[in-house]
Computed example of a mutant assay.
Amino acid sequence: MTEENFIPSETYKNIENGEVNAKCSSNIALVKYWGKYDLQLPANPSISYTLTESFTETSIQFQKSDTFSVKVYLEDQIQENFAAKIHTYFLSIKKYLPFIDQYSYSIHTKNSFPHSSGIASSASGFGALALCLMNMSELLGEKNSEQFRLRKASFLARLGSGSACRSIYKGLAIWGKSSNIPSTSDLYAIPFPYEIAPIFKEIQDTILLVHEGSKQVSSSVGHNLMKGHPYASTRFQEANKNLSEVCDLIQSGDWEQFGKIVEHEALTLHAMMMTSTPPYILIKPNTLAIIDKIWKFRHDSNAQLYFTLDAGANIHLLYPEREKGLITSFIKNDLIKYTENGNLILDRVLF
Rank of each mutant, 00 (worst) to 15 (best):
L74V: 13
T50A: 13
E138N: 03
K152V: 02
S116Y: 00
I281G: 02
V72W: 03
G118S: 10
L318D: 01
T109Y: 14
A29W: 01
M134F: 01
M134L: 05
Y105V: 09
S112W: 08
V70C: 06
G253K: 10
S117W: 03
Q147M: 05
E202K: 10
K337S: 00
M273H: 15
Y12S: 06
A266R: 00
Q204R: 06
Q61S: 14
S112F: 06
E265D: 07
D101R: 11
F99P: 09
Y306M: 13
L131T: 09
G18S: 07
P198M: 10
G171Q: 13
L282S: 01
N44S: 09
C132V: 10
D205W: 00
S25D: 01
F192C: 07
I47V: 14
H270V: 05
Y49L: 14
A83S: 10
K177R: 12
E263S: 14
Q204E: 01
S117V: 09
K296C: 08
R158T: 12
G228P: 06
H115E: 04
F68L: 11
V72L: 11
S301Y: 12
F90H: 07
S220C: 04
A123S: 15
P45F: 13
Y37P: 06
Q79N: 15
L208C: 11
L309V: 07
L97A: 03
Y105Q: 08
L159W: 02
G222T: 02
S26C: 00
Y105H: 13
K170I: 01
L249Q: 07
I345C: 01
L243W: 10
N302V: 06
Q102T: 05
I281A: 06
S167C: 14
I283N: 06
S92T: 04
Y73T: 04
F236W: 14
E195C: 05
S244M: 09
S121D: 06
T2R: 13
L41F: 13
S122D: 02
Q216C: 09
Y37F: 15
H264T: 07
A311M: 15
L326S: 14
D347Q: 01
Y96H: 11
T184W: 00
Q251P: 04
T275W: 05
I196R: 04
S214I: 02
E138Q: 04
V210S: 00
L309D: 03
L172S: 07
A239S: 15
G222R: 01
L269S: 04
L317Q: 07
A189P: 03
A120Q: 03
I199W: 03
V217I: 15
L187N: 02
P114Q: 09
E146C: 09
